[in-house]
Every structure is written in C-alpha cells, then in structure tokens.
Amino acid sequence: MSIHGLEGKNVLIAGGAKNLGGLMARDLARHGAKAVVIHYHDASARSAAEQTLRAIEAAGAKGVALQGELTSARGMEQLFAEARAAVGRPDIAINTVGKVLKKPIVETTEAEFDEMSAVNAKTAFFFLKEAGRHLNDNGKVCTLVTSLLGAYTPFYATYAGMKAPVEHFTRAASKEFGERGISVTAVGPGPMDTPFFYPAEGEDAVTYHKTAAALSRFSKTGLTDIEDIVPFIRFLVTEGWWMTGQTILVNGGYTTK
C-alpha cells in the first residue's frame, strides 16, 4: 500500500454532504478510500448527507455522517473525536466550510463581521489544529478558500478578508506538521456553479462572472464547475503530497496571484 495513495485510507470532509464536498466524498470513495466521514451542519442538509452516504457505500467504502456546529473549538474537537471513534485516525482531512457575504464595508454590521470571521477563519484554524492532533503520520490536509484572494475588487471584504488568514494558517501548519510527513494545502476555486454562489450575486454580477475567466467559454456554465476542482484536491491529498504550504487558485484564469 502506497503511503500517498487512497487505498486503506480514512477521509474526513467538513461540509461533505453536498455540492463540492459531496462530490469529493463520492470521488475519493470511488478511488479506493477505506472510509469517508462526512460532516454536515444542520438538519436541512441531512437528506443530502444520506444520499452521499449511500453513494460512498455503493463505491465500497465505509460511510459515516456526523452533524455539528464547527464555529467553536469544542465543536471541532467533537467532530474529530467522533470521526476517530467511528473509523480510526483520519489520513486525509478536507475542509470545504465557508460563507459568502457581498456587501459594502460601510453597510456591514458587527454581527455580520463576527459571523464571517467565525465561519471562514476561525473554523479553518481549529480544523487545522485538530487535524494536526488527530491525523496519522504522512497525512494530508486541504482547505477550500477563494480565488478572490487574487482579486482587486469591492464588496467582498469580509469573505475574501476572512479567507485570507487561511493562507498563513496553511503555511504555518505545513511547517509545524511537516516533521510528521503531513502536507497542508489550500485551494481557491473561482465562482462555482453551486447554490452557495447565486444568492450573494445580482443578475449583472452573475453574467460578469460567467465571462470573466480566460477559459469561461469552455466551461459548461461559464463558472468554475465542481467537477473541475475535485481532481486537483484528489491529487493534492494523494500523489501531490510534495506540494505543501501553498494556496493554489484553480479557476480557469479568473484571477491570478
């Protein structure tokens, strides 16, 4: 068994019930993962989690679904403890949790700021902390950020701004965990064709985003399709282990750094 393959490996995906996380869970199960633990936030995602579980099990992997609120250190500790109790130490941990807010700075409330900080930055930090505590040696960690980290744009101060710290969290964690063979990366997709994207954007903005990438005309939606992100993450958490401490923007030429 290769230490950098998927065979015999346990996977934990935060936000793994649907959209990109759900597709990632299905994909890693199909490619040989032994067990895939998917986290979902609340009861509204339970049906999607159950569908993803069935697909994981149909692919021959063990599937486990865990519900939890991850914006507290205690919630993250509980997720990793429950995952470990269910399948053993994880080998691969992927965090897809995030929240978009498109709003001018002068209209943003303190409550909105605090929520965006908790969901996008705090959750990412404590996910990395618990991954560092629980992952097997030679493990892999990947966090989803945003291609807006390479943009010069208004209105996304609390979204891109709260994803920005994850770049340094990733660098620091890669240094701290590297002596155990653990690689740590972040992936920043462009605007994705998921329900996560549309509520934050007006019709004009959607039209712009669908034409903004250099390769937009070759995408089925003009946006970043989740099917195009999954192979990059799969690579980073398997044979791509030598890349660590990096934030990679995968967006068809939407933004660069």
Rank of each mutant, 00 (worst) to 15 (best):
118 A>Y: 01
116 M>H: 02
141 V>W: 01
147 S>G: 15
110 E>I: 14
151 A>R: 08
116 M>T: 01
110 E>A: 12
112 E>F: 02
113 F>E: 02
132 G>S: 09
157 A>F: 04
129 K>H: 13
107 E>M: 14
132 G>P: 11
118 A>I: 00
155 F>E: 09
115 E>S: 12
124 A>N: 05
148 L>I: 03
111 A>L: 07
133 R>I: 11
157 A>Q: 03
137 D>R: 13
103 K>E: 13
115 E>F: 05
150 G>Q: 08
151 A>I: 04
102 K>L: 13
131 A>C: 06
104 P>I: 02
113 F>L: 13
148 L>T: 04
143 T>L: 14
125 F>G: 02
119 V>K: 08
152 Y>A: 15
132 G>D: 08
114 D>G: 04
154 P>E: 10
147 S>N: 12
142 C>F: 03
115 E>A: 14
141 V>F: 06
104 P>T: 01
129 K>F: 07
132 G>I: 08
129 K>W: 05
126 F>G: 02
112 E>T: 00
156 Y>P: 00
118 A>N: 03
110 E>W: 07
151 A>T: 05
138 N>W: 11
122 K>M: 09
132 G>W: 08
151 A>K: 11
136 N>T: 13
137 D>K: 13
156 Y>V: 15
110 E>R: 09
154 P>F: 05
122 K>W: 02
102 K>A: 09
149 L>H: 06
143 T>K: 00
157 A>L: 12
154 P>D: 09
153 T>F: 07
101 L>N: 10
109 T>D: 10
142 C>T: 15
139 G>L: 03
155 F>L: 15
123 T>L: 10
145 V>M: 03
146 T>P: 07
113 F>Y: 11
134 H>Y: 15
120 N>L: 03
142 C>D: 11
125 F>H: 08
154 P>G: 13
131 A>N: 03
101 L>C: 10
129 K>V: 09
116 M>A: 14
116 M>N: 03
149 L>G: 11
146 T>C: 12
124 A>V: 04
104 P>R: 06
127 F>H: 00
155 F>C: 07
122 K>R: 15
112 E>W: 01
134 H>I: 06
138 N>S: 13
107 E>W: 04
132 G>E: 07
135 L>Y: 09
141 V>Q: 03
134 H>G: 01
133 R>Q: 14
104 P>C: 07
106 V>D: 14
130 E>H: 13
